[in-house]
Design a protein around this nucleic acid. Structure first.
Lengths: 188, 188
DNA sequence: AACCCCCTATACCGATCTGTGAAGTTCCGC
DNA sequence: GCGGAACTTCACAGATCGGTATAGGGGGTT
């Protein structure tokens, strides 16, 4: 399924440093505001090493989002597995915890705001958001089988979650806890 | 209140062309992806004229968002005035109509994703979003006085609206109509 | 030993970035 | 017809952009 995911453990040390530095800088300052010179300097590696490991800046941007998704997703799954019904609230909990260091909102929506829709990374963005929406829909179907319209409830929770997350960089992190409270009341 | 708004009618013709072209390009391609050379070329004026009317690219970015808010807000108010209760749904209607040409989601959230938080335009972004949230809260208080927690319902609608709008560039425009349907059911 | 891979350093490419300088033109109100 | 605002063209500055070139060092495998 995820044939494109980045296996961090098999990256060369230099490549790992490049990806880490690029992730920090892209998220903090935006993609177009960060140059490859800055990434190389921040990662303690020369541009030659950067281009030995990543074909282009665009490829590095794609790897940034792929890695962000593929390292976060198992952590979310773990929290879902440990949660009691309604497990959908576990997503809000994870987002609320992340909010302490994820101070500029959703990295995927931020990237979508900057990239052309035919950029290779755009497929990663769509995959990430579709995964979350499908996960919420499944959790609602399984945990609230008496619900007459589980699909609509799933989308309802998705909009609450993403609305709060999208505004995190503008409004701050209390919005996500308010969204969780609203979601909790919806799930009885 | 709005001492910083741009009065389009008293801009010089060249300045107006610059602002229009910059607005198109900033929204379509992002702020950092667009250079002043491209804005000058697209607007049919020279860079000299651009800098005679705007102190810097940052000032032009700020004017772009100020104008976008100050030209859209009266149109929204008009629709609110003409709407029947619950008037909050009129916001969803306006967003749904805008979606036909506003294909890359919210210009203010997109800008917030690219700009540093101390950029002058960031205050415009916060003002815009606070205005919408306050408007929704007021409409709910006035139209649904029987509601036990009108503030929470207002925030609930805000999150639905903004969640759908934020995803418009990724998921397309049917999400906003689904959000409207959910909002309608919440308002009975 | 030879080889290969990954790394280093430094210099360079053409293009583009924001912003400025100087000088000349068009148009409008007085 | 004059002044001035707004415009034009052209050139340029200094920096930075993404990306490449050359040359060599360090360590592990065979």
């Amino acid at each position: 399924m995820n044939d494109q995911t980045i296996d961090v453990d098999q990256l060369t040390p230099g490549a790992r440093q490049v990806l880490d530095a690029a992730s920090r800088l892209f998220y903090e300052h935006g993609i177009h505001a960060v140059g490859v010179d800055g990434i190389a300097e921040e990662s303690g590696v020369t541009k030659r090493t950067l281009y030995n490991n990543f074909a282009s800046k665009d490829a590095l941007v794609t790897a940034y989002l792929q890695h962000r998704h593929s390292s976060w997703w198992p952590r979310l799954q773990e929290r879902i597995d440990d949660a009691a019904a309604p497990r959908a609230l576990a997503l809000f909990d994870v987002y609320a915890e992340d909010a302490l260091h994820v101070t500029r909102g959703c990295a995927f929506l931020n990237a979508a705001a900057e990239l052309p829709t035919d950029h290779p990374a755009f497929a990663v963005i769509r995959h990430h958001k579709a995964s979350i929406e499908e996960l919420l829909a499944r959790l609602v179907r399984e945990d609230s089988p008496e619900e007459p319209t589980p699909d609509q409830l799933g989308r309802h929770l998705f909009l609450l979650l993403e609305g709060a997350f999208a505004h995190q960089g503008v409004r701050g992190r209390q919005l996500i806890t308010e969204a969780r409270e609203i979601a909790r009341s919806l799930l009885q």
